[in-house]
């Protein structure tokens, strides 16, 4: 099955990740479904914390670990984008 191309909002979130964490990689090389932690981008909990502040600043969405829906927020760029979209103040 062909992979879904990134949506504009996914590209925007990927850009936020690259710029916030000063990753040395072009946004276009980030796979939207690749894990953000571990083997994917290799991010750790400090990165998650920094990213949470940038997301709050940019989108007004506050991340918390114990959300009732238990979404694995940082699973991938795609899941993070979905989470932000679902929780953005209208």
């Amino acid at each position: 099955m062909a992979e879904n191309p990134p949506s504009p909002s996914e590209t925007e979130v990927a850009t936020l990740i690259v710029e916030t964490l000063q990753l040395d990689m072009p946004v276009s090389t980030i796979e939207m479904d690749a894990p953000l932690f571990g083997d994917g981008l290799g991010l750790d909990s400090i990165d998650a914390l920094e990213l949470s502040l940038a997301i709050k600043r940019q989108y007004g969405v506050e991340l918390r670990s114990d959300n009732a829906d238990k979404v694995d927020i940082f699973r991938s760029v795609r899941s993070l984008t979905h989470y932000i979209a679902a929780h953005s103040p209208s």
Partner: peptide, 12 residues
């Protein structure tokens, strides 16, 4: 116990 990573977790 419980998550204590994000500022919202710490507040909780």
């Amino acid at each position: 116990t419980g998550p204590a990573l994000f500022p919202a977790d710490i507040r909780a």
